[in-house]
Nucleic acid binder design. Sequence first.
RNA 1: GCCGGUGUAGUUUAAUGGUAAAACAGAGGACUCAUAAGCCUCAGUAAAAGGUCCGAUUCCUUUCACCGGCACCA
Length: 467
Amino acid sequence: MGHALEFVRADAVARYKKLIGFEVFFNTGTDEHGMKIFERAEDEGMSPQKFVDESYAKFRESVKIFGIMPEAHFIRTTEERHIKAAREFWQRCKDGKDENGQSYIYKKNYKAKYCVGCEEEKSDSELENGECPLHPGRPLEVIEEENYFFRYSSLQNKLLKFYEDNPDFVVPDFRFNEVKQFVSGGLRDFSISRLKEKMPWGIPVPGDPDHVMYVWFDALTNYISTLGWPEDEDGLFEKFWANGTPVQYCGKDNTRFQAAMWQAMLMAAGAPNSHKVIVDGFITGEGGVRMSKTIGNVVDPKDIAEEYGTDALRYFLLGEVSSFEDSPFTMERFKNAYNAKLANGLGNLASRILTLSEKYLEKCPEIPEKSIPQEFFDYFEKFDMQKAVEFAWNKIQALDKRIQEEQPFKVVKTDEEKGKEIIKELVLELYAVARMLNPLLPETNVKLKKLIRENKKPETPLFPRKD
RNA sequence: GCCGGUGUAGUUUAAUGGUAAAACAGAGGACUCAUAAGCCUCAGUAAAAGGUCCGAUUCCUUUCACCGGCACCA
């Protein structure tokens, strides 16, 4: 469900940008390297390549239900063009020099703590009082190996300056504060390679076949490898990254990687920084508890989309889920929102207006060029989908109220001209609502606009009530 | 442990140093164009204790509860 949230949110923003006339390059992808994938492939008894091929196929299939714009791009980190880009990126970081003339990538001895009991390396945060919590009393072995390191430390000031110059770089601001605090606290160089003999499933480090890249270093370059960097034969990188406003969407657990590490990497490689990073909260179960199979509070977005439709899923993720904080998703909440806002709200309003117009108007009235209020767009500029949805639904409510107060269904029987005039206005207002659905509920947007233009009431309800 | 944040109707959230708002859920009513939908009315709220102030939900302190960050797990 978390993935669904990010896809739908990012897609809504992309569609919004398109709607107001921007050219949009919408990218998403799959990170296909790393230890986890290697191990899971092994468990399932297949090659890593076959495993990721199958995962990718499943991923592409699952994405369909989110209503992502058809021209969206998908990059896989196992694609040749990505591997090439990641290696070139590495090379440029290595060639790049900080103010002391030191390369951003260097090799040094790396000491890892190894717990014989667990048979794995332990990070400091996993230890308690310097011991493995699972095997207290057993001393940790220190193993040394040579690794490549990224000179994160020398980019601290540059990053802070960048944040200062771009005060809205991370949305929402409290996430930005976390990042700033983290960077201000000092940056430590970190290892960006793994010994190939230990972790064979990764992109080889340029000029050193014994090492593969740390997955994050590889994965983050997808933002520009998808655009054809570095050759940039089609000029996409130039257009959408260098001269565009690249916006990245991520969950809150990804904040630091997108907003600090990736930005530092771009600086090291001498490439322009991202424009913005938008951080979503998590979707939780009832009461804010994490969704988990053991608790049994997991909801599969696929099931929702199959039963209620893609747009119903999108409605909930955009309108009922907090724009930046954690939010619960339960079937009960979903059904309530569906019936109240989609069936009784939007669907019913469309029915009542279109029934009137089909009956009393000869044809659809002339539709003006533009009819979406600026305020609606403003919410998108702030990436506040929830407010945008609320704005559209306030309009729906106002229209319901207006029908109740002006009673065109009665007026048209006593004063036909006047009644028709009201109905005409209602149809145009409904069209404005339909337009606002463009980035939010794309299927309904198309369906509703078509019905209005054809001056036809829906044959079946747009959103049938579900009890 | 350190740093930051949050605690408002049944639920999700809003505004505000001067009689607390919306949506959904609940109760009642009049209507009928509509998906027994919609509209109107009603009821209901500031974690706890102190302090500053003529006056605090809003500012400060403490307590309690919850959340986030504190890097090589991606």
